[in-house]
Simulated scan of single mutants.
Amino acid sequence: MKKIVLIATVVLKDGKNEGVLEALTALHQATHQNDKGCLQYDVHKDREKKNTYVFIETWENETLLAEHMEKAHFTAYKAFMGERVESMTLQKLEKIL
Rank of each mutant, 00 (worst) to 15 (best):
M1S: 11
M1V: 10
M1E: 11
M1R: 14
K2A: 15
K3Q: 12
K3G: 09
I4Y: 05
V5F: 14
A8E: 06
A8Q: 08
V11P: 05
K13Q: 09
K13H: 14
K16F: 15
K16T: 11
N17D: 09
G19C: 04
G19A: 05
V20Y: 01
L21N: 15
E22V: 07
E22S: 09
A23N: 04
A23K: 04
L24W: 05
L27N: 03
L27E: 02
L27I: 05
L27T: 03
H28R: 11
H28W: 09
Q29I: 09
Q29T: 14
A30L: 09
T31S: 05
T31M: 02
Q33T: 10
N34Q: 13
D35L: 02
D35G: 00
D35F: 02
C38Q: 07
C38N: 11
L39A: 08
Q40F: 07
Y41E: 05
Y41D: 06
D46G: 06
R47A: 15
R47Y: 13
E48P: 01
E48L: 14
E48R: 10
K49P: 01
K50A: 15
K50C: 11
N51G: 04
N51Y: 05
N51R: 01
Y53C: 01
V54K: 04
F55W: 06
E57H: 01
T58N: 13
T58H: 14
W59M: 02
T63Y: 15
T63E: 12
T63V: 12
L64G: 00
L64P: 00
L65D: 01
A66I: 07
E70H: 07
A72V: 10
H73R: 03
F74C: 03
A76C: 07
Y77D: 02
K78E: 12
K78F: 04
K78N: 11
A79I: 03
F80P: 00
G82N: 10
R84G: 06
M88C: 08
T89P: 09
K92I: 03
L93T: 06
